[in-house]
Design a binder for these strands. Structure first.
Lengths: 222, 222
DNA sequence: TATATCATCGAACGTTCGTTCGAATCGGTT
DNA sequence: AACCGATTCGAACGAACGTTCGATGATATA
């Protein structure tokens, strides 16, 4: 972890991973050839295989490294904070901050989650489950504290991750608000939505819920 | 559009598109070979090319068909409704309902958005821009009506689409709440988050926003 | 300077892929 | 039965891919 303790090998590996992640993020995992990575790193095709033993393992190394850091940072950040709302707020902040600061790797983690298989998939997926569980447990705790019983916690949890993980599809550090603003907006959107004013739900949102659902059964249905 | 007016050719084309979409959704576009689609449709490799002239056009036909329907259904549904909050609610309902009922095609639309290029990409992207614009304008209108001036509308818009489009990563019609419940939860989460109780934002969320941001600058940064 | 380990390389192998093309088959009309 | 357009097919091509292997260069230790 500490940057000054990295061996030559480790530095080179990180360089390869970062370069590969950038290309994966741009063209997608399957459209990227090892030859693309060789060109970008100025290494030979076979020289790359000194650092990973298959293309799939290369993807794994990127995803695992990335996920491990997010979770570790998150745990460190939450340590000693007991208020679940505050904890959730820190989780969101950490997630978004890391996401924006490591957009390539996080895009590869989010978008290529199913491009990996077998044991390597299981390994990454276990980390993901831990992380999602952490968030879901927080929401359950908050729901208990605030007596929120009309919200499906699983839907709420993945709605939150949807808001956060979707940003690789649109966020541009150049044109958009900065990370602090992004974090603030999403935190406010989600949290005041979750804790939300019940009046808004019942009075404004209850009207005519069933009347038009059959409309979007499309030609796909035959 | 009307099912009874479809020619033999059209029916067959829809069959090919639906089958292809199912495989694209499961294995991903680039990992799916035309041979996979031939096997699933029980057609020959070359026989498929009677219905599309390249693999990329096949992807385009799926995405375009799908997007066109979502937008048309949405427009029809919103026609005559003037209250922007109600309009937004209908947009969300239509989107989620169509998404769940056509999960394969919508996953291909969401997840393979960048697997297409050139003019075909532009065509799909124009539709997307129209649709996003429709939602964003609605949010702007609502923000004006309710004097909401502390939210970045672009962030809010894509947060909404993030909540909605992310569902292909987790939603299971078998285990999860039904579409109506999904729709209700997401509508309530987003809308009461957007209109939200300002007290929640300022009192509970303002604490210590800057204090720990440097924590998640990781090893990726070198 | 000799030696061992680390790091890199060029060249090639076998496989899979998207696409093409001319021929065959089908269904309906004369 | 003869015909014609619509539809399907088998076989093949060239290109690109992931991976391997033996050899070569670099670096540090003795």
């Amino acid at each position: 972890m500490p940057a000054e303790a990295q061996s030559k090998y480790d530095q080179r590996l990180v360089f390869v991973l970062k370069t590969a992640a950038a290309i994966f993020a741009e063209k997608g995992y399957h459209s990227t050839s090892i030859r693309d990575i060789a060109r970008a790193t100025k290494m030979s095709l076979s020289g790359l295989y000194y650092y990973f033993k298959s293309k799939e393992e290369l993807l794994f190394l990127i995803q695992d490294y990335c996920f491990t850091t997010v979770i570790d940072d998150c745990r460190r950040l939450l340590a000693g904070v007991s208020d679940p709302v505050h904890r959730l707020k820190l989780l969101i902040e950490n997630h978004l901050n890391y996401f924006v600061q490591n957009m390539n790797e996080m895009k590869v983690l989010s978008h290529e989650a199913n491009a990996i298989s077998g044991d390597l998939f299981k390994k990454v997926n276990n980390k993901k489950r831990q992380y999602v569980d952490l968030a879901m447990k927080l929401l359950e705790e908050i729901a208990r504290d605030y007596r929120i019983n009309d919200l499906d916690i699983r839907v709420a949890t993945f709605s939150l991750f949807g808001m956060m993980n979707w940003i690789y599809n649109w966020y541009s550090p150049r044109k958009d608000v900065d990370v602090a603003g992004l974090s603030q907006t999403i935190t406010r959107l989600f949290l005041s939505g979750f804790l939300g004013d019940k009046r808004i739900q019942t009075e404004q949102l209850e009207t005519g819920r069933e009347s038009h659902l059959e409309r979007s059964v499309s030609i796909w249905q035959q």
